[in-house]
Amino acid sequence: MTRDTTLESGQEKAQYLIFNLRGEPFAIPLLGVKEIIEYGSVTHIPNMPVFIRGVINLRGRVVPVIDLAARFGEPPTTVGERTCVVIVELQDEAGINDMGIVVDGVNAVSDIPASEIEPPPRFGAKIRVDFIQGMWKSQDRFVIVLDQARVLSIQEINQLAEMMEDGPAR
């Protein structure tokens, strides 16, 4: 995996993985993508936010799987033939964690120059604005470039899960 970055010149560009979710294209940086696997054998974990589909066994490691559609407040993804799980590596205060995201299909890898990424629309995307890093015009349509750290924030998941743990008890 190579990444072509020239920070100073303004010619900065990076590779992005373009995938499909409910008919719309989204992009995440390719750098953190470890592998893409077929969807299957997800163990459901109860009492977690609905967008946590569960965990999978990835060669002995247990990796949580996130349903992106559900994370965006839409109905959970229905599993089809092209459904797959993109395994990404996240690095934050909590350390390095792998996470899987469920997508409806993987389309391409594209070089996107930083200058071509437009700021997100102030409203209208119907996705939390802080999830969107920007928009990229590809041929005839807009690709939503996701702010991976926000979308997959472990801290936020923990807070939601804690609320659920306490919730029904009272």
């Binding site: 974990i45 965990v55 996470m99 899960a161």
Partner: peptide
């Protein structure tokens, strides 16, 4: 025993998980 990871740290009643014979994860 394997740890379930940061994401599930709110679930105090799960002490970990394990990979069962068919490759499935058991809590």
């Amino acid at each position: 025993i394997k740890p379930l990871g940061e994401v599930f740290s709110a679930l105090k009643w799960i002490s970990g998980c394990t990979v069962l014979d068919v490759g499935q994860v058991g809590l």
